[in-house]
Simulated scan of single mutants.
Amino acid sequence: MAVLVTGGAGFIGSHTAIQLLEKGYDIIVVDNLVNSSVESLNRVRRITGKDFKFYEADLVNKEEIRKIFIENNIEAVIHFAGLKAVGESVSIPLRYYHNNLLSTLNLCEVMEEFNIKKLVFSSSATVYGNPSSVPISEVFPLSATNPYGRTKLMIEDILRDLYASDNDWSIALLRYFNPIGAHSSGLIGEDPKGIPNNLVPYIAQVAGGKLDYLKVFGNTHPTKDGTGVRDYIHVVDLAGGHIKALEKVSTSKGIEAYNLGTGNGYTVLEVVEAYSKACGREIPYKIVDNRPGDVAACFADTSKAKEELGFSTTLTLQDMCMDSWKWQSNNPNGYEK
């Protein structure tokens, strides 16, 4: 089975590419390399010992997508491609709406043209907005608090409308919680541009000496140590969820949303402690003011993914921190030589 992986050079895309190749799938990767490096794909080849086609192309250009479908016998698509920084989306919202929506519309139109109707979409737990309780179930009301989250929610609505218009489509909407960690080889991992937006890459750069200290946003939340609680999932487990979702869309029709998390919440300071243990050094941090809009706790109800996809996680928070540190210490400048 040949699978098109859009955004396949990115953090989650590259880890999923490894598992697809190891499961015997043929893959075609397309990525515009705006937030990723082609070196990640070289390392995917090195880890798996398998080759695949790569197109440096932008999904905003429909003709480039059409060319890929003409040249390959694609049977299903896993769609990761998109801009993804929450803070940046607030600063440049039009770019996020233009890129994330148009690229997905173009992709779906070309898929329809070639009668390819199996799609796994990379959504986000941001579509739950500020949930009123935890754990968060797929039936919770949907909303968004920033342009990035709104693009994910709008695309989910587009895909629901697409299925309503044509019941031959089979679509899985995967709502990620907080992916961290790296491949156990230490060869691929998260490579943020500039100062990281997410907690663990930030901690990793503090541990590696690139940043002086970690800013912890608030310690007055109603949690065990006052810091925010989040559901962290190892990127390798998360990649496995995409394989399960691909199997589901390959054997059924319909559209369903699935939470991909562990179902466990950890505070910021618990993550700092686990990372300190993994790297064998103290992680200096300073408590600063709460960020407006930050919720105290956010973690997943994972029962639907377990029951319908047969998906469950196996890797612990300590595994996540150890693998992240292995990647960071082996690649202090990411994919740069």
Rank of each mutant, 00 (worst) to 15 (best):
A144G: 13
L102P: 05
V200F: 05
Y148W: 11
P196S: 09
K53N: 05
A144H: 13
S143F: 04
T227A: 12
T316R: 03
D166W: 00
D168G: 15
S132P: 05
D161L: 04
G261K: 03
R43C: 00
D191A: 12
G208Q: 08
P332W: 01
F80G: 07
P147T: 08
V272G: 05
I70S: 11
L20G: 12
V3P: 09
I136Q: 11
Y96H: 05
D323P: 03
V295E: 07
L4F: 05
Q318W: 02
F114G: 00
V235K: 01
E273F: 04
D231R: 01
F54K: 05
S122M: 09
G181C: 06
A17D: 11
L246P: 10
V200I: 15
R291T: 10
A172S: 12
D168I: 03
L174W: 02
E308S: 03
V134D: 10
G49Q: 01
N100E: 06
L105Q: 09
A57L: 10
Y55C: 06
M322K: 14
A305Q: 07
P332N: 01
N259M: 13
A297Y: 03
F140C: 14
I92Q: 09
Y148L: 12
I12T: 13
E88T: 14
T316Q: 02
R150L: 14
V295W: 04
L174G: 15
L269K: 07
N219C: 13
R160S: 07
A297Q: 05
S132F: 06
L59F: 09
N35I: 14
S122E: 05
A57H: 02
V235P: 00
S14L: 06
K62F: 01
H234S: 14
I68E: 13
V229F: 08
A257Y: 03
I92G: 06
D319A: 10
E156H: 08
K118P: 02
E39S: 10
S252V: 03
S324P: 08
L101N: 06
Y335P: 00
